[in-house]
């Protein structure tokens, strides 16, 4: 794990106190559909390839993320509102730590 990420976990994310995000996050229909397509292809994959979890190859550079619950527990959501408008999905958000 990256030392900075390790530090954040060790200190219970206290360094992130005071973080906030406010506004709206929008995703186009096109991207949602791509995601759906991806989801379907994952779900309909032959069982043989999903039943045996492939071992991560040596020197794999993908970052292993810690349990996101650890972080989300610290987040206080003041507003979280889902809505749609023509061509996109919008998530209105106001949250802080």
């Amino acid at each position: 794990m990256h030392p900075v990420l390790q530090h954040l976990i060790d200190t219970d994310f206290s360094d992130l106190q005071g973080s906030s995000v406010e506004g709206q996050f929008a995703v186009t229909d096109e991207l949602v559909n791509l995601g759906l397509h991806e989801l379907v292809s994952q779900l309909t994959k032959p069982a043989s390839s999903t039943s045996t979890a492939p071992a991560a190859p040596a020197g794999d550079k993908t970052t292993v993320l810690p349990d996101t619950k650890l972080l989300l527990r610290k987040v206080k959501f003041e507003q979280l509102r889902y809505r749609t408008e023509a061509g996109r999905t919008v998530l209105e958000i106001k949250a802080g730590m």
């Binding site: 906030s20 995000v21 406010e22 506004g23 929008a26 995703v27 186009t28 096109e30 996109r88 919008v90």
Partner: peptide, 10 residues
Amino acid sequence: SFAGTDLRIT
């Protein structure tokens, strides 16, 4: 992909 996004992050 994220057109319409307007986020302020501290």
